[in-house]
Design a protein around this nucleic acid. Sequence first.
DNA 1: ATAGGGTTAG
Length: 463
Amino acid sequence: MGSSRFSTRLLNISIASFCKSQQLEKAEATIADAIRLGYIPDVVTYNTLIPAYTHFVGFDAAYLILNRITKSGLTPDVVTYNSLIAGATRCSLVPQSLGLLEEMQRSGINPSVWTYNTLMHCFFISGQLEEARRMFDKIIYSNLTPCQTTFNTIINGLCKVGDTSNALLYFRRIQSRGFSPKIVTYNILINALCKSRKLREARRFLKELKESGHDPNAITYTTVIKWYFRSSRFEEGFKIFLEMKSKGYTFDAFAYCTVISTLVMKGKMEEANVCIEHMVRNGVLDIVSYNTLISFYCKEGKLESALKLLDEIDKGGMNTDEYTHTILIDGLCRTGDIDKAQQHLKHMKLRGYDTNFAASNCLISGLCKSGQYEYALKLFEKMEFKDSFTYTSLVHGFCKAGKFCEAANIMIKCLRSGMKVLTSVQRAVFYGLRDKGLGREVRKLRSAIRIARTYSRYKSELR
DNA sequence: ATAGGGTTAG
């Protein structure tokens, strides 16, 4: 029936628009209505829901769409699987991404360039360079043609693992072989260069971008503004902001969050507040926007306002994420409400956020601040994953309590795990040990640092 | 349907 096909297309358009404005319930209600009226959703209808479910609910919810497709007598296609792989990648679920690749091949669906691009990205962000390389080889051996995104993914991946110089070399090499960079490539490089503090080189790329006939877009502008603000060059940042406005670009959620969080970071609370008012007036808030707001209120010590937003998120049918809870735990610790912070951490575990160690890091530093070292140490020992924040917080805490031997021991553990303690905290440990006449401990620590340094040099030579 | 700018911790 021709008219029904036409209606399915209209249905899909309206589903896409609901998904885009994060109105999943309306999307689902529309599908239900359509079915009641005798129109049949097709695989495109369901595929459209996948990224929306990933984004606003979670990967598990997105994965359930697969069942709905088969239950409706439809067959998942390459787009279904590519979307699911992208969803798993988004949620940092590497094994699931690979499982999906196998699953799709078992169902007789051939992976496309998109599939491998996505998997390559997945491996890059999880630091598995060899595997990422293997995905590129798959593209070549499967007689698929690498595309612009393939190259951008590689450049971006190298940047994300901290290898900006190799990203640049690779970029220049493929450029000399006919790769013509577009705006995305430039944005990747400009951001990476800013991040590794090569601001001059970043500016050169901005110039190159303009000279090659491209116009900076909203992403370019947001990136540049962020880095001007971060280096406290507010005047220049606002100048760029005006240039952006004069080009007709408006702020989106990304731009607002970037600017607000950078201003908060710099302690410019009034300016941040002006920006927040704009953001709230201008658009639908997503979870990251809410997190940014909550962070602002926490830094201001207005925990009630922060908690009120939690209700608002709930009422809007949105889900909080690990950031939301980490920010709150940190806020509670900062106001000295350790008990509530601990309660909240338990609540996180119950909600399945147990792999999140950022929250534990906050709690460790909060416990140290309130003098509960024993408890901080217990929590530290229970933590399965630790990073340099974990170690630094604890070492810092012990220093402040005058327990320099304990601080030194934790620092040695940290060095042995291949991580570093913040330099200023390192200095505090040495100063304290010396002050107490603990020369033997000083020497022990020195030698641990030397060994760690040798080892890390050795590792970088191996690469 | 994939790649680029956003939220956490000293």
